[in-house]
Simulated assay, not measured.
Amino acid sequence: MTRHAHPSCGSPPHGGDPQEPVNGHQILQAVAALPISTWRYHWEPDHVRHLGPMAQDWQAIIGLSADGHTIPLVDANGVLLTAVQALLRRVEALEARLDRLQDTPTGR
């Protein structure tokens, strides 16, 4: 077994369970609807704060969690990367639209 100096998330090798495509824009909308707050674990000192969603909200809105009490890092990474890709596609589409509008004589 290989030990890593930092946590990592594995992914299945080719030939694992079938991959299913996701709709990045739906994921982005779900992320936008996800309540984000600061919080701390009850055993931590009062000055310690973390930032993120509650696992129950994550389960209800994103739908990825085995137990509704934790947010698997592999899923959090995948959701965030998918949302970033969807945002990039939106920005590129808006930039292209703006370029077309600026190229028209009337600006419309």
Score class of each variant (00 low, 15 high):
P18V: 01
V31K: 01
P13Y: 05
S8F: 10
L88N: 07
H14S: 12
D57R: 04
E44R: 13
Y41R: 05
A83M: 11
A60S: 09
H47K: 11
C9Q: 10
H4D: 13
V22G: 06
Q85H: 14
P13A: 08
L87Q: 08
I71Y: 09
Q29W: 00
E44C: 07
G68N: 13
I71P: 02
L51P: 00
I36M: 07
H47S: 14
G107M: 14
L80E: 10
T82C: 13
L51R: 06
L34Y: 03
G52T: 01
P72F: 05
R49D: 01
M1N: 09
G24P: 00
A83T: 05
A55Y: 06
D67S: 11
T82P: 08
L28I: 06
A76C: 08
D46L: 15
N23M: 04
V91P: 00
G24V: 00
Q59D: 14
H50L: 03
T106I: 14
M54H: 08
P45T: 04
G78S: 05
L73D: 09
Q85V: 08
D67T: 10
N77Y: 08
V79E: 02
A96K: 10
N77E: 13
A33N: 13
I27P: 02
T38N: 02
R40A: 14
A66Y: 09
L88T: 12
G63C: 13
E20C: 07
L81A: 11
H6F: 13
V84R: 12
N77A: 11
D17K: 03
R3Q: 10
G68W: 07
P105F: 06
H6K: 08
A30E: 11
L98Q: 14
D17F: 05
Q59I: 01
L34R: 05
R100H: 12
P18K: 03
D46R: 14
I61S: 00
A76I: 05
W58S: 09
R40H: 13
P53Q: 01
H50E: 01
H14K: 11
S8N: 03
T70C: 07
I61M: 01
P13Q: 10
L80H: 08
E20I: 03
P13D: 04
R89E: 14
L88I: 03
D75W: 07
V91F: 02
R49T: 06
I36Y: 01
M54G: 07
A96L: 14
V84L: 15
T38M: 09
E92M: 06
A66C: 11
D67C: 12
W39C: 02
T106S: 14
D46T: 10
W39G: 00
D103H: 12
H42Q: 08
A93L: 13
A55R: 12
G15S: 06
G24N: 01
H6S: 10
P45V: 04
Q29D: 12
C9I: 03
I27H: 00
L101C: 10
P21T: 00
A76E: 10
V79T: 00
